[in-house]
């Protein structure tokens, strides 16, 4: 499973065709979702499968439809990015050395706060699905924020795409005009 994830990720790096890359991205999200399921996070897994693998991929494909499907052969050195990534990765691995081990029930994250959400939820909210309960109550505010994020993104996309046809014309007719900035 993990291996598959790695393979998919690396495949994206190597690929030139954008269709395939986007599909790989979808597959990657899907694999990720499956793994989340294995890690006992079904809610997240479903969301990731639907939103990450589903919506993102569709959006990306739609964009491809509007733009182009081939990536150019890239030129120039790839050393600098590799070095940056190498350092970042090494830092992270270094950081893991003091981490509580995978699945450790006594790790701070899993043992604090006390009583845990699970225990409190039973008394406070009476919904068996703790994730839903926390989402809607204790951290309801994050959820509100999440709605706002969607809203913001929606407006931003709308702002960007609205009337883009007319802009297209303006830009073309203006040619190399740089200074004039108004179109309406």
């Amino acid at each position: 499973m993990l291996l598959l994830l790695c393979v998919t990720a690396v495949a994206v790096v190597r690929m030139r065709g954008l269709w395939a890359a986007v599909m790989m991205m979808g597959i990657y999200s899907f694999l990720g979702a499956s793994w989340m399921l294995l890690l006992d996070a079904p809610d997240v897994a479903f969301t990731e499968a639907a939103v990450g693998a589903g919506i993102s991929t569709v959006l990306a494909l739609a964009t491809l439809g509007l733009t182009t499907t081939r990536a150019k052969q890239r030129s120039g050195s790839s050393m600098l990015p590799l070095v940056i990534v190498g350092i970042t990765g090494a830092a992270l691995v270094y950081g893991t050395l003091d981490m509580p081990h995978f699945g450790d029930p006594d790790s701070p994250a899993n043992s604090y706060p006390h009583p845990s959400y699970v225990e409190r939820t039973e008394g406070d909210i009476h919904i068996p699905n703790v994730v839903t309960a926390v989402l809607a109550s204790y951290r309801g505010y994050d959820t509100l924020g999440e709605v706002v994020v969607i809203f913001t993104a929606g407006i931003a996309v709308f702002v960007l795409l609205r009337g883009s046809r007319s802009r297209k014309r303006t830009h073309r007719s203006e040619g190399s005009e740089v200074r004039v900035s108004r179109h309406d």
């Binding site: 913001t152 993104a153 931003a156 996309v157 702002v159």
Partner: peptide
């Protein structure tokens, strides 16, 4: 975590 959420709100709107 709330910082992160608001950070994204401000960021997304400023991209727009």
């Amino acid at each position: 975590f709330n910082v992160f959420v608001f950070l994204e709100i401000s960021a997304l709107s400023s991209y727009g």
